[in-house]
Simulated scan of single mutants.
Amino acid sequence: MKNKIAVFGCGWLGLPLATTLQKQGYKINGSTTTKDKLTLLEQQSINSFLVDLNDNDFTTQLDAFLSNVDVLIINIPPRMKTGDTSSYLTKMKLVHKHSKLANVKKVIFVSSTSVYGDLNGEITEKTTPKPLTSAAKQLVAIEQLFLNDTGLKTAIIRFGGLIGNGRHPIFHLAKKDEVNNGNYPINLIDITDCISIIGLIIEKNYWNEIFNAVYPYYPSKEEYYTQIANTKGLKPPVFTHNKSNSGKKVISYNLISVKFYNFVTSV
């Protein structure tokens, strides 16, 4: 019998991830912060739970969600309604504590290439993160929280910019008059590969590792987004260049060169 997997956060990525894993034979617990979505999850044969980090009693909801779970996939972005810049980390410490109490053995934490900040040049998993924003600093702290727990098997996935299923940065950029750092390379990944990579980690037991996850295609932002804007019938923004910095190129070294993963969908 396949493991029971808890997908913590069934939004843009989490819902199709949960349905894909469910079709592969896994029993799935899925969480949402809205009551309306509970029925949608149940229609997909997913055990639905209302778990909102902003609720004062969210750990009670969390305990039910984590009951008899083998693998926990944390797919909650560092955005909190309270405005407290440290609240996300505080809540994730409680998630870690209660996952231990529930005897969860394996955790996949969905992180971001934002942890590398404004580093320049080629970036691999061996590159030391240099987060600049509060959100990125909290992501690094949470990565270490789970990785340093020898009682857990943990995988960290640092996704690049997420596209697919109706989502693309060009829709936001096209509304701007000017976009900075047009000479920087893109670091993007399609949702199809996001789901495939998470499934691969579970299937192959790739634990206690960090994975950069970016499609290996790095044209400049100006070149790429101008082309995409023209394809979609949008007005391309004007791009400025950073003369002192060439930007970061995030290499999915562990996935491509070590695990020999073949990306499914181009960007």
Rank of each mutant, 00 (worst) to 15 (best):
N54L: 00
S99R: 09
T124R: 08
T34V: 06
V95F: 03
Y218T: 11
P169G: 12
N208Q: 01
K27L: 15
L50G: 00
Y215T: 13
E223I: 05
N148F: 01
K235Y: 02
T59D: 15
F263N: 04
K176L: 13
V115F: 03
A64R: 14
L200P: 00
P16K: 10
T124C: 07
R167D: 09
S266W: 02
T60S: 04
T82V: 01
I157Y: 01
L101K: 13
Y116A: 04
T33H: 03
L255I: 00
G151M: 02
G151C: 01
Y26D: 13
P77F: 08
G199D: 09
N47P: 14
I191W: 10
D84S: 06
F263E: 06
M92G: 00
S114N: 08
K232N: 13
T20G: 03
I195Y: 06
D118V: 06
N54P: 00
K221C: 07
Y215G: 12
G182E: 03
N3P: 09
A141N: 10
K106P: 14
D193P: 12
P16D: 09
Y184C: 06
I251Y: 05
T231S: 13
A141R: 11
I170F: 03
V238C: 00
V107K: 04
M1R: 13
I251G: 03
N183M: 11
A6P: 15
V264T: 09
K204Y: 05
K176E: 12
F239E: 04
K221P: 04
E203F: 07
I228R: 05
D63V: 06
K37R: 15
D70N: 15
G182R: 01
T240D: 07
I123M: 05
V258A: 11
A64W: 10
T150A: 12
S67D: 15
Y206G: 05
N208E: 02
G160N: 03
N181P: 02
K23H: 11
C194S: 11
P169Q: 14
K175M: 08
P169F: 12
N187I: 07
S244G: 11
V214T: 14
Y225N: 08
T265F: 03
P219Y: 01
S114D: 07
I170M: 06
N180F: 02
V214C: 09
K249N: 00
Y215H: 09
G164V: 08
S134M: 09
Q144V: 03
H172L: 14
I195W: 07
N148I: 00
G233L: 02
Q61Y: 14
L66V: 14
V179Y: 02
I202Y: 03
N75L: 12
D70E: 15
K153V: 04
L173A: 06
N212Q: 08
L13V: 13
I201E: 02
G161S: 04
L15F: 15
T33Y: 03
L15M: 15
K176I: 01
L145Q: 09
Y218G: 08
K126H: 13
S246T: 14
F65M: 12
V250I: 14
K153D: 15
K259Q: 14
V110S: 13
N47S: 15
L132F: 05
T150K: 15
V238G: 00
N254T: 14
Y261I: 04
S45L: 11
T33I: 05
I170K: 03
D70R: 11
K81C: 01
V267E: 04
G233W: 01
T85F: 08
